[in-house]
Design a protein around this nucleic acid. Structure first.
Lengths: 149, 149
DNA sequence: TTAAAGTGTAACTATTCTGGTTACACTTAT
DNA sequence: ATAAGTGTAACCAGAATAGTTACACTTTAA
């Protein structure tokens, strides 16, 4: 499990919250569904909250709710909320680096790869949480599973 | 420097090789330009060779050459050569996982996120090594730098 | 007013990945 | 034969993620 499972986890979390509508769900319940630890969930929910995607209620009966309609939340919103590093890093070289080509190549690569990264964001922006949920719903129907946890 | 600098490094390497045309360049010379260790370069060149993008000549005067014209090499070719993990992992849950929603969400996320990954590849495929080199050349002209290492 | 159910967050561990480095066997031109 | 190369194994260091425990703080409800 080397790669980044955080986006998958965050979408999973947001999906559950939208299923529950306005009823707050505890990190422990979410953790059970996601198969991880409540603290991992709270860390992710913290980021989603900071980004304005989720509201959290403290105390007894507390938990998290989606702050927006799933139609208004795109996967790009969720991805950005996680504050991940760039997918492709381009370390820059010192001004004094002896190879002229080396010095010049890096800024060009930054430009090119940040363009690619923008495209990645675009394609995440085209998918709403609502669309993901619809796919989940239709699979549930296919498999004859009731719509409850 | 947490993120993946390998794509940037690999493009940098391929660019240098194309500058040198059919003259083999040693991993040590490349390492000087890229500002890293020759072994790091050989590891990357090994992957590029395996993917048929580069030819290597052993022994004295040996080194690496581009195996194709830069017009025929896309950034997707280089990216795939590196055999990286998926950008977004989606760990699947056991068949016996108690939460039905959890069991169903994961395959949906796999589907959605692998679509995003395909888009990423598409956008890398649209950029050729030749285009990157042209950008480097024009920056060199701007800065009045001669075309030699 | 107190107990219980929550969140937020710090701290520590284990795992994995990348990059850097040394070392050494093997290849080849001169 | 020697020197200049590659290929590759082995190890270290640093960073990120996930998992876990622990505990202070908030809030509902009995």
């Amino acid at each position: 499990m080397a790669g980044n499972t955080r986006l998958a986890t965050a979408i999973h979390v947001a999906g559950l919250l939208s299923f529950a509508d306005t009823v707050p769900i505890s990190s422990e319940n979410i953790a059970d569904s996601v198969n991880t630890n409540p603290v991992v969930i709270r860390r992710i929910i913290g980021l989603l909250t900071k980004a304005g995607l989720v509201n959290v209620k403290m105390g007894v009966g507390g938990g998290a709710c989606l702050a927006k309609s799933p139609v208004e939340v795109t996967l790009a919103d969720i991805y950005l909320a996680l504050e991940e590093n760039a997918v492709f890093e381009v370390p820059q070289l010192e001004e004094s680096h002896p190879c002229a080509i080396g010095r010049i190549v890096r800024p060009v690569l930054s430009e090119v790869l940040s363009g690619v990264e923008q495209n990645l964001l675009e394609s995440l922006r085209k998918i709403t949480l609502a669309e993901v949920i619809i796919k989940v719903h239709s699979r549930m129907k296919e498999q004859g599973i009731l719509g409850q946890k």
